[in-house]
């Protein structure tokens, strides 16, 4: 997780990542937020500046933590796989896992911690069911490499890819209620909500879920 796990699209006007803007829309103003795998703190500072949230972060890289410190963000150097267990129940209104779940060793355990620590969890991830991924595997017979997933199979930090369908299944298994789900197409635009799941799973480049403990 030292490198960004995916290469994100940005909003040309504000310079903010499109998935961050989407996450920010899901967060109530003034709430308490924990961003797990917060990188250089871009999402946390966006949430602080636009939503007035009281934000905290966990980041595995020292460079990331120092960048957060310089932004005045209280961020702890740590590992989502091992350190979430230390957080008390219901400590936050939202726990965010942005483009990180596929880089954890135990995604299910991590997701369960998110739902325990926060009243709500927001999870975004790259969709491994996207048609280009399927094309690479199915027709080219190669592990996919796209703009969003730029790593070779041997040096990728992403060890637990899933499709949108897989993630929905996991949410059911851990008893998470899906309050909102949005898929972004390759252009970073939200896809129409009325579309069926299989279309999302085929055309969605990434997905953002707002979850609640059932």
């Amino acid at each position: 997780m030292n490198l960004p796990a995916t290469l994100p699209l940005t909003d040309t006007e504000s310079g903010h990542r499109l998935d961050f803007l989407l996450v920010a829309e899901m967060v109530e103003p003034g709430s308490r937020v924990l961003d797990v795998g917060c990188g250089d703190g871009a999402l946390l500072s966006l949430l602080r500046d636009r939503k007035g949230v009281d934000g905290r972060g966990i980041e595995i890289s020292r460079e990331g933590v120092n960048a957060c410190l310089a932004k005045g963000l209280p961020v702890i150097q740590g590992d989502a796989d091992t350190d979430l267990a230390d957080y008390p129940d219901d400590a936050f209104d939202y726990v965010i896992l942005s483009q990180t779940i596929q880089a954890t060793r135990q995604p299910r355990v991590v997701l369960e911690h998110l739902l325990r620590i926060g009243r709500r969890a927001i999870v975004s991830f790259p969709n491994f069911g996207h048609w280009r991924v399927r094309f690479d595997l199915g027709f080219r017979g190669r592990m996919p490499m796209t703009e969003n997933l730029p790593y070779s199979w041997y040096d990728t930090p992403n060890i637990h890819f899933c499709t949108i369908r897989d993630f929905v299944e996991l949410c059911r298994d851990v008893g998470a209620q899906m309050e909102k789900a949005v898929a972004l197409n390759a252009g970073g635009q939200p896809m129409r909500v009325t579309l069926p799941w299989w279309v999302w799973n085929l055309l969605g480049d990434q997905a953002v879920f707002l979850l609640k403990r059932r």
């Binding site: 905290r56 957060c68 410190l69 961020v75 740590g78 230390d86």
Partner: peptide, 21 residues
């Protein structure tokens, strides 16, 4: 140090933590 950070987290304090190599 992690024990301190853990307690501060549990106390909902504003805490940052760095382990320097």
């Amino acid at each position: 140090s992690r024990a301190i950070v853990h307690a501060l987290n549990a106390a909902a304090a504003s805490v940052a933590f760095v382990e320097v190599e």
